[in-house]
Design a protein around this nucleic acid. Structure first.
Lengths: 233, 233, 233, 233
DNA sequence: AATGAATGAGGGTTCATTCAT
DNA sequence: GATGAATGAACCCTCATTCAT
């Protein structure tokens, strides 16, 4: 066979590269599809995103999508799961070892969140969940368990540390949590929803925004402490 | 019409009642449709809501819906327009005439917002817009102009009053606004999205939540003012 | 190929076995595929059978199937051709040499049919053809020519022998043929269609069934010959 | 409105006709669709029949089909159910009241079956079931219960009457049943499968076929009773 | 005005077939 | 030869929209 000859004269590395290319593509496919799907789901919502569009953005044909995900709904669930990093352990360890004032710890916490989640595509999941939770109650429950609760645990840990070290005054821990989460939610809404629609582009500087929020959160707007309610001195 | 003749010979009271009922219903139709549409759009999003379902919930047939709104998209826009109260004028007047400390003014402002918007069905619009903004950029722009900006103006007015009267210390007015808006957004997300999915109902008391947020907002979490950044005395 | 070198240094017996195995498999491939295809076509019909399933049952990959058969339709035709034994010659010779009463000859004929066709997978072809004839008119015509007509010729020969030897009374030879064929068809339907669906297995014993049918065929249900129509003495 | 005028001058009967037409169509739709579906399923099988084709043959659009049947599979089941007349009661009563010899009774039975079932479109169901039973086990079970068993009961009743009145000699009742059913099955196969594929058209005269089969069934092919097995005198 | 039967474009999904490895 | 990832035409089914009544 002439092909056996050509095999011998063709550079082995070439064949190796071709093989690697093929295999790498196959392994990369699910990730590429999930990336494309995340973009589109965040942009248009689940129902308004067409399967073919996802495939096209990932550079494959419609049929290929269904080689990797049995249905659009499973694709959606996979997108959510994929973008919910189980990195809370690592994050928690970093924060547990934090040395310094708790105010700085809170600043650090939000900075890390922004760098690792907020600024990445994964933050779109949040907006996505808000739009689709009612249509995917099991995904919503999954998100509650895998994201909301761990994050709340982390924040609660920080706030409790502040209280324990005599740095913070917290009347109601359960609701104080929300004071930290609200700016995160707000920022994501800005990035992925309304903020993405104003023609002049993104009108908010996330880092400055978060800094500002944490300062307000820590010290409030009031100049005169005597306005404070309750037993604060 | 020959039918008007028959009306006259039927018992007047009977006919009158029927007529009034009918006419009232007829005039109420668009409102009933908008109400039904709001519920469903908020619950399931624009694309996942079926026109027929809207009609059914409003107690009319599919065809009737299209008698009042030329398309599903126009229905959507009408829902948004309808639920954006033009009552900012009234609200603004009330606040302009507010006498007393600005901290109380802020508390009052959020209380009024909750009573008139947050607690009503209209609050769903917010969640809806967040989910659909990218699909309806013109609606998003409209919402920016008609809702976001007026509300920001209102809040800015309050905060500026606090500064002018020496009550508030605000380093960055543009971002301080967001500190007031974030809890509103957060509460609406809880009410209409994730919070609506946890089976036991989300354990959040809106009034207590808002009170808590305003207190934190006003006085911060820190006990010792010396942690405060900048030129605060 | 460089791999052929490694073969030479590996133990010869080992390589020999592997080679033989491989080559035998290679030659067996089309047969294995046809077997698998017959099973599945009979079980589910042509359209509901997936090519990949056929390949999987034959232990090869989807692509290999198309190496041997250019299309699913050609596979179908090959399945039919393959399972239409050209053994009519042999069968005919056996019957031509049959000595003894024609009643026994008929019994023998059906017994041979059952042993060589009815009891084997090949019988499924009949059910398959019945289900698919309208979709494959050329196959149906082919089947008519290659199977129905030869079989009819065989049966006609037997019946004519009975008549010629004064054993049988046959008013209408063309339709008498069908009296012999109907039980064959019926048995195959039982085996491959409805009978395969009743959970406890269809309670029919083919040999007993055929014996019973032949007896009835030969002697009828009536006790009193005077009920017989026509010129029978 | 000019239309109100035309209403008054148009013949009332005309409006009535129009109304009736519309309503009649609506009520006729399911039947028209079932008819079309029966034709096509029998002709091409379940899988090879396209929904749109069924709709087109019924003179409606694709979507309309799904207004009446929730899926192609439900359509199939409805086709089967629709064409399995519960007229066994009536048939049974007729036969129970039959007076005369049981041989004639059997002839009458098959004649009635041909006229009311075999010659109608409903007979296609039989062929359809044979092709699709394995794909629709629940339909197969339903068919067993609703068709096979009642028909067997009817035939058994006739044969038993023959035995009781000393007219028939039946060694094995369970298998004698099949002797009567086999020609019915055979005829249907001819009509709807192979027989429908021979270009010169239907090569069998059903009435003559059935007469011939019943005669053979009753009296057998043998001239000399001494060939008979068993205790027959 | 109101109805709801009918439509048909659109989108999810399947699967025979191809082809680079 | 053998593989199985990729393709895309084809098909089922949905649902916004129309229109005769």
């Amino acid at each position: 066979m002439s092909s056996s000859v050509s095999k011998h004269i063709s550079p082995p590395s070439n064949a190796g590269v071709a093989l690697v290319k093929r295999e790498r593509r196959k392994e990369a496919r699910p990730g590429e599809l999930l990336d494309a799907a995340l973009d589109l789901f965040v942009e248009k919502g689940f129902a308004a995103t067409r399967s073919e569009e996802v495939a096209a953005r990932a550079g494959v044909s419609k049929g290929t999508l269904f080689l990797y995900f049995p249905s659009k709904e499973e694709l959606f669930k996979a997108v959510v799961r994929e973008n919910i990093s189980g990195r809370f352990q690592e994050w928690r360890r970093e924060l547990e070892n934090f040395e310094g004032g708790t105010a700085d710890m809170l600043r650090y916490c939000l900075k890390v969140w922004w760098d690792r989640v907020g600024a990445t595509k994964a933050s779109g999941i949040n907006k996505l969940i808000i739009g689709e939770a009612r249509n995917f109650p099991d995904i919503a429950a999954f998100y509650q368990d895998e994201v909301i609760k761990p994050v709340q645990g982390l924040i609660r840990m920080i706030l409790q540390r502040g209280v324990d070290r005599g740095e913070f005054h917290i009347a109601d821990m359960d609701y104080a949590l929300f004071s930290v989460m609200a700016p995160m939610i707000f920022l994501i809404m800005m990035k992925h929803s309304l903020g993405a629609c104003v023609p002049q582009g993104y009108p908010i500087d996330p880092e400055r925004y978060l800094t500002s929020q944490v300062d307000t959160l820590l010290h409030g707007l009031c100049l005169r402490p005597e306005d404070a309610p309750g037993d604060r001195r």
